[in-house]
Write a protein that binds this DNA or RNA. Structure first.
Length: 245
DNA sequence: GCGACAG
DNA sequence: ATCTTGTCGC
């Protein structure tokens, strides 16, 4: 798929805030038009990883058949973060390399599962919203920890959930994807509802806490996960001295 | 003012 | 994110 970063890509925090404020009104939330046939899981690995703009990054995209969760496509890209880590602006570190990886894809996924927040963001425009606007595809955010908001403890079983509220508004849902595990934070990105987002995350995580695409464990049964892929891409780039973009 | 803060 | 041993629990 052919993609393009916005022309006014920011170089500082004020510029980044302006980009978020400008793009936020473009987000649309509605039910998915049809059950997605393919899901793409996205992840980024860091080297250095201390939050500086110079950190080396590698992105991986794994596209799965939504029904069988089998891999149908994959892509990776390496580069430099180019932006320091600031809570609320972390999309500016990951978007360039994620877009580069998405461009390598032979197929166009029906839904993008992003590692981080969507709506549950100080300016209501987390990574998942941003990537949705850039791609025009349905997106959702699955985060391992919330960025903001308050909620009640969800029930103990898989599928139990509790709304996350911030400023009187429901911005996410704490969702238990397996019995007894710590809940994940699910929020809408673009072209999806919170109900649909939670249903998709639950369906994509039949075995572990995180979706099959984002599992931070070595592939147990030969299933490649985005996290594993991008680490390998970073290591391969180091070995051959590939120039950073 | 103080603390918290996706990856 | 990343650095990392042992350890608690099913």
């Amino acid at each position: 798929m052919r993609l393009q970063l916005t022309p006014d890509w920011p170089s500082d925090q004020d510029g980044a805030h302006r980009v978020q404020e400008r793009l936020r009104p473009l987000v649309r939330n509605r039910p998915l038009p049809a059950p997605p046939r393919t899901l793409a899981g996205l992840d980024v690995a860091y080297e250095g990883g201390h939050g500086s703009a110079e950190d080396r990054v590698a992105a991986a995209v794994v596209v799965l058949d939504a029904r069988t969760l089998e891999v149908v496509d994959r892509a990776t890209a390496v580069g430099t973060a180019g932006f320091p880590y600031v809570p609320g602006l972390f999309a500016f570190r990951e978007l360039p390399v994620l877009v580069a990886a998405l461009e390598q894809l032979a197929t166009t996924p029906d839904l993008l599962l992003c590692d981080g927040q969507g709506l549950a963001h100080p300016r209501r425009f987390g990574l998942a919203c941003h990537l949705g606007v850039l791609t025009g595809l349905p997106t959702l955010g699955v985060a391992k920890t919330p960025l903001l908001g308050s909620w009640d403890e969800p029930g103990p079983f898989r599928g139990d959930s509790a709304d996350v509220r911030d400023g009187g508004e429901v911005v996410a849902r704490m969702l238990r994807t397996q019995d007894g595990v710590k809940p994940v934070t699910v929020s809408t990105g673009h072209l999806i509802t919170l109900d649909d987002a939670c249903a998709q995350v639950l369906a994509a995580a039949p075995r572990y806490r995180l979706p099959e695409t984002t599992l931070p464990q070595p592939s147990a049964g030969g299933t490649p996960f985005a996290d594993r892929l991008c680490r390998d891409a970073l290591a391969a780039a180091d070995r051959s001295g590939v120039p950073l973009s």
